[in-house]
Design a binder for these strands. Sequence first.
RNA 1: GGCGACAUAGCCAAGUGGUAAGGCAGAGGACUGCAAAUCCUCCAUCCCCGGUUCGAAUCCGGGUGUCGCCUCCA
Length: 466
Amino acid sequence: MKIYNTLTRSKEELKPGVPPLVTFYACGPTVYDYIHIGNARVFIVFDVARRYLEYRGYNVKLIQNYTDIDDKMINRANEQGISVKELADRFIQAYEEDVGALRVRPANVKPKATDHIPQIIELVSRLLDNGYAYVTNGDVYFDTSSYPHYGQLTRQKRDELLAGARVEPGEKKRNPLDFVLWKQKKEGEPAWDSPWGEGRPGWHIECSAMSTYYLDDTLDIHAGGADLIFPHHENEIAQTWGADQRPLARYWMHAGYLNIEEQKMSKSLGNVLTVRSLLQEHDPLDLRFLILSAHYRSPLNFSDELVAQSRSGRLRLQEMINNLFSALESGGDASGKRERDLQKALEDAKTRFVEAMDDDFNTADGLGALFDLARSSNIYIKEAYPYNRDLLEEVLQFYRGINNIFDIVDISEPESLDDEVAEKIARRDRARAEKDFATADQIRDELLEKGIILEDTPHGTRWKKK
RNA sequence: GGCGACAUAGCCAAGUGGUAAGGCAGAGGACUGCAAAUCCUCCAUCCCCGGUUCGAAUCCGGGUGUCGCCUCCA
């Protein structure tokens, strides 16, 4: 299993600290608003990564934090005239709803920054003790000049970073690159007692504190969106080193950007697409499929056309699953060349899928393997009759396993038909046998209105829900 | 200015040395009473110019173009 490590800019063999355990920390949302599709990409991509690692036999412990205290939280809460806590509660719930609809599985631990103030204070104290931080008027800053490797993740030296850095007026930093660990309370802001007076944590510190608290040692994987590389993850690395003289994580994974119609999503362009609004008109599985159709590190350009394409492609897989269930009804124990061909196609797909995913989670290539098997499976169903029931089950079982990672189709036993509909289908079949196509078509239209689509196959009429 | 990524058919997208996966759309055909679903066929010399090599989309050099980061944006 190879993973692209942003730290080394290369693919590396995954070697967890204590296999089969993989400790996985994914940066979670700042809960001040509904998440947008760009956020969703990150969560979906790492959800799939996590599930694939489990598929490969790893025992994944996933931590995903909620940032529930920072400037954005405070500003938004003030705008809305509610407390930061109320804001956080509301959008944590919204997040869980949205991401749940997208079938992202919850993390094992979902810590909030505000629940870990003691750990944060403790970490800041240690940084001060170790000489990596300084206090200015109740603020505590990390001293980037004290950490020689600062810039390693960003691949820039301190002075190079410095060249582009902006200096905010009125700041109490010694150096523009220094960042705040603890922020002194301003009037009307939530605050906690600390050795440096009342205040609140800076943004970067929470992840270092919480990952250390829950996982105790160097993380196997630390993941987030590409825009977190600098400064967020760079700072986390520096902090954790300063406090504990150890790397924060072995592998750094970053998901690429998602743009809208070639443009970055931004409030000023008015092109922010929330998951909530997209779910009004799109099937969440189509969105998942869309995300997985590109490699996670590539930029992805979201558009209505792309959603439509994704849907068509996804429905091809869904239809194939339906075909499998339908064929199972007439499954027997046939065996011959057709069975051998399908068996071969199945083995090929298994191999290719794992090879693709083992190569830094190449989901696009993995999908290719699924489509290839879909064709073979459809050919088998079309040409071989009766079928080999065990083989059909085996194919279905493969897709079940894959879908436990990708989650892009529904694989469940077809519902049983209610008597009224069954009777109508029987009546239509009689009409067709008598070449009374007017009646047959009328019944088909009738059922279509009820959301039931009829398809005539050489082996009888089958139905599906619209 | 510094750092970095990317450039494959109408669209999306794999492929990192051996003569271009897959999906969507499109065209033709098979099947069907008609449909639907499905299957078959067709549809790219991989941004440009050099170089290395028996052989390059894949490696090297030089261009061109697009994008990102250097601001508490995923």
